[in-house]
Amino acid sequence: MRMRKTTTVLCAVLASSMAVTLAACEGQVPQVSTATSTSQAPDLTQSQEKTIRGKILDVLNQANAAKDPSKLSTRVTGPQLQIRTSELNVAKATGTLDAKTTIPSEIMQTVIPTDSGWPRSVFTITTTTEDQQSKRLLVLDQDSARDNYKLWGVARLFPGAQLPKFQVPSIGSQMGQADDSGLETTPAQAVEHYADVLQNGSSSKYAGDFAADYFRQDLAKLTENVQAGMAANNGTQQQTFSAEADDIKVMRSSDGGDLVVVQINSVWTRAAGEGRESLPASDAEKALFGSTKATSTIKATYVNVVAMYIPAAGSDAKIQAVGAERQPIKVEAV
């Protein structure tokens, strides 16, 4: 009797299981898992970065070939647009493009942010050029989702410059802000202080905050030479620097500091002594000055791009400029 009962139960179970399997002939409809990962991921892959950089270099090369800056704006923006436009204008006047304008197509490293908002910046460090010029730090900037990445700034890295370490592109780095704390100074303050140091040299009260760099040295030497010449002719010269602190590009390094790229505008006014004319001080200035009638005073407007590393607070390292670019964009007689 018990045997028959168990058999009956078994049959019932089998029958019902068969009914279930027959009903669900196609299987259950898969469901989208609601748990979306919140982990940060890089905004671009390395191959995307390469493609974007390729498109930018294409635009630059076309402009170089035609010596025509008019088409640059599709892929170039910010200080680099001003600098490259000036460089192409100089090239148009002199017939040759300055060697410093070369941007290698091979890269050493790219730093891709993980930030989901806009604007976004990608920092890319190229190799040295074929003629052994130093590496370039490229800042590619995307202003909004409906814009494309554009070349915002180029800084030629100083020979032997030590760049901080960044996360590998497959992990992605975090973009910094102009008011980042936890550093020696905030990036916004640092760039203003650096402009002050450029203007006042070693007499600046911030001079001690910054380690020595080639850009400051060269600029001081140039100013000294010009000063000597001007003084012989009873002339005067003055150079003012102002940082564009509200449009700086910051990338957080994996060792706690920030790599900052900033545009610093400078105006160099030189007044010659009585009865004399002030003339352009370099080939680039001359090309930009063109055939304008010279007067006793000349005003040259420069765009400088400076890359500097601000170490984390508590570090005994000083703020270190690691690369720079400088180009006159306008030279006029006043």
Binding site: T45, Q48, K55, S144, R146, D147, N148
Partner: peptide, 17 residues
């Protein structure tokens, strides 16, 4: 939306894989 002054065309955006 952020202003889309000189927006690129859909197919020209850098963001798409």
């Amino acid at each position: 939306s952020t202003d889309a002054g000189d927006a690129v065309a859909f197919q020209d955006s850098d963001m798409w894989t």
